[in-house]
Design a protein around this nucleic acid. Structure first.
Lengths: 232, 232
DNA sequence: TGGCGGAGTTGACATGAATCAAGTTTCACA
DNA sequence: TGTGAAACTTGATTCATGTCAACTCCGCCA
């Protein structure tokens, strides 16, 4: 990994408090790579050789069984994934693929485990990171199990709007079939869901979305910080 | 907490490597309590005052939104729950209730955070525990999203059989309506699912289950270690 | 011992969402 | 600027599950 990337990675919460020597050890064996969209980065069941860090772009974590497949979570910068598998030295439970063009740091798992054993600050940062991952999955599961597809879309749009700075109109950052997968529904159903949201003042033109009356949409969406607040 | 409980708690992986003084600090403020079935221990949204440890019995983690409720995971001895909320000092994302008569240790969250800051062995143990919790939720989510209710029941029975030592017949440890909630289906549907499993050699008499031909049942259930192995 | 009540079952029906099969629009590229 | 492929939409149908209501079974105890 060229030195220019060191500072980017070092800025991540997971790495910022750790000892300089430990950090150097991790970086020596690691590298950063750019991936195009739709590349499968890891496959469930395989041993966890690398800790992955999404520096930019987005990664979809998904799982398969008996010929079926489902999206589990979306990882956005800047965070790690498969940290749990790495630290337990256990096989991946999920597969991962890039949703967009993404820049990803790969750090050998054995180095991570070695540094974890010696660097206390790193061990502590890892707790915070794992707790965050855990809570993200829980929130995603609540979104999925408690809401209908229409409600999931409504809340997704409100979250996107907030992320985009609160403007009445903003762009979807996925193509629609991808968004459907992320929201756990078929593309056909997403189409119908968008149509259903017209009644709540949502206009869609390609990837451009306009929310006429956020209050109205929120009455349907009923957003809850315990599901929708990414900082919690 | 009477001294007699100290050894039980100390035996847990999370607490076994930590400094004796730190352990003493945690135990001083904590207590063990027996709860009858169906008691709500914590409610989502509340601040995380205590780290809970299930010593015996079983606890259901569930979540609600907009009048709906869903079971998220079942916690069995010996493990903790809401560790992530405790360490982040963030509100609970899930509620918890006892499924059976349960013995639960309650450790003040602020003590846990204080000891976490000073005891390196404890911080490391916490990483393992959190990684385990994370992977448990992921497995539960896979079970739920990828399998039909019939398949979930079939796999549940095979897991129970393994837990009971592999004998052809064993007892369900829940009453059926409770089992239905755990498996994420209505009691009516569970009834139908059991009937559907007759064709695969499953006999049910009250809470007593007999699996005539595990091979046959496994052909339907298609158990996968990446979902069903509790040690992974 | 009769009858009350709760768990469990069963059948009829409603609903949400996936699937299938056409269409239609969009857009890159010749 | 035309054309083909891919993305998207739409309608019809199917499937899994939940819901509602009736009914059985069984134990308990007045």
């Amino acid at each position: 990994m060229p030195d220019s990337h060191y500072t980017d990675v070092r800025a991540l919460h997971l790495f910022e408090a750790m000892d300089a020597g430990s950090f150097e050890t991790l970086m020596r064996g690691s590298y950063v790579q750019n991936f195009p969209p739709q590349i499968e980065l890891i496959t469930e069941g395989e041993p966890s050789d690398f800790l992955h860090v999404v520096l930019s772009g987005a990664v979809d974590l998904f799982a398969s069984w008996n010929g079926r497949e489902t999206s589990m979570a979306t990882v956005r910068p800047i965070s790690t994934f498969i940290l749990a598998a790495t630290i337990k030295d256990a096989p991946y439970l999920m597969s991962a693929r890039t949703l967009e063009k993404s820049r990803i740091a790969l750090i050998p798992s054995q180095d991570v485990r070695a540094v974890f054993d010696t660097d206390n600050a790193f061990a502590r940062a890892m707790v915070t990171e794992l707790a965050h991952c855990y809570r993200s999955v829980v929130k995603a599961q609540k979104d999925l199990k408690l809401r209908s597809s229409l409600e999931r879309l409504a809340n997704y749009l409100l979250r996107q709007q907030a992320r985009a700075g609160g403007a009445a109109d903003f762009a979807l950052n996925f193509e629609k079939r991808r968004l459907a997968a992320v929201l756990g529904m078929s593309p056909e159903n997403l189409s119908r869901a968008f149509k259903g949201l017209k009644a709540y003042g949502v206009q869609v033109d390609g990837t451009q979305v306009t929310i006429r009356d956020p209050e109205d949409l929120a009455r349907l969406a009923k957003p809850s910080p315990l599901i929708d607040d990414p900082t919690l």
